[in-house]
Write a protein that binds this DNA or RNA. Structure first.
Lengths: 165, 165
DNA sequence: AAATATACGTCAGCCTTGTTGACATATATG
DNA sequence: CATATATGTCAACAAGGCTGACGTATATTT
């Protein structure tokens, strides 16, 4: 392996374009988002591992729980993954009795997804953990912080999906 | 395939434990976080694909850029992945001339990581895109929103890493 | 009624990025 | 000199993305 020998540097202060005076604040936001999301997902991931499930299962369970009777294609719109990727985890969730699909009486091509008891249970557990983390952060921040938090997140979402939440 | 036939239901309103009166707001936050992070990462991912890089490369480039001279183990602490996972992408980044490692003169076991020109360039591009998205969201939200946004995110990070940002 | 479009499922194979476990080397430190 | 630390690497595996191809049931259009 080739390793060059040089004194440790500290890269002084780098030049920032003047039209980006607030770059530092934006970089802070980028990093906070990384760390927060990292820890926000790590906790559910650990729980899911007990069921031999992963983050992909979590997403499906969550959004089916939140939108009972959602169709497969609506779920695909939310997750923005391919149907093959969804099929893999959905099949497991159905086979293992966490989710049930019923045929839509109006349009027989559609499969309406519903959580079964086991699904409701794990959804509640996972959501409770994530909600608790957010609730703690809300409580620690100022009273106006939750609104600011949500408003900024909403603004970060592509227009098309902003009205979803 | 077995599909039960039942009329479409709307699952009425589910029961919420009374100690979680604000559950709706917390669920909103959970979903906003999901959608915002999804779109926040999708844009860089698309750019990185042109270089045959992925999200893992982005993280390394970003944090090496932000912490010039960072060691491998410090980077591992941030990313919270195994050294083998890091090694795979780091090797590519070094081989392809995006990152350089220099030996620490104080402690010769350490490798200090630095962006090379190509690395600086792509880092700037990716960060500019993400910063622009956040800047737009900041501008669209109220003047106090950015502070609330950051405060809540900070509160969501595990204590150990809160002081990082 | 026939043709086409839509919703969904599935098979096969590939890639990235995470994991574990084992082991090697250089350098620091006790 | 012995041990601990920082790093690198090989091998194998799993999760969860992807593409492409194809099948079937149901709706819709012609």
């Amino acid at each position: 392996m080739t390793v060059s020998k040089t004194p440790p540097d500290h890269d002084a202060s780098s030049v920032e374009p003047q039209d980006m005076e607030d770059m530092e604040g934006l970089r802070q936001a980028i990093e906070l988002l990384f760390f927060a999301y990292r820890d926000f997902t790590a906790e559910p991931d650990a729980i899911l591992a007990h069921y031999n499930f992963g983050r992909a299962h979590h997403r499906v369970i969550y959004f089916v729980g939140r939108n009972s009777g959602i169709t497969v294609s609506q779920l695909l719109d939310i997750l923005q993954i391919t149907k093959q990727s969804l099929a893999r985890v959905l099949r497991q969730l159905i086979d293992e009795g966490f989710i049930e699909q019923r045929q839509d009486l109006g349009d027989g091509r559609r499969r309406l997804l519903h959580l079964l008891d086991k699904g409701v249970e794990i959804e509640a557990l996972l959501t409770a953990r994530q909600a608790a983390r957010i609730a703690a952060a809300f409580a620690a921040a100022g009273a106006d912080a939750p609104q600011g938090f949500k408003d900024v997140l909403r603004g970060m979402i592509n227009k098309k999906d902003r009205q979803r939440v």
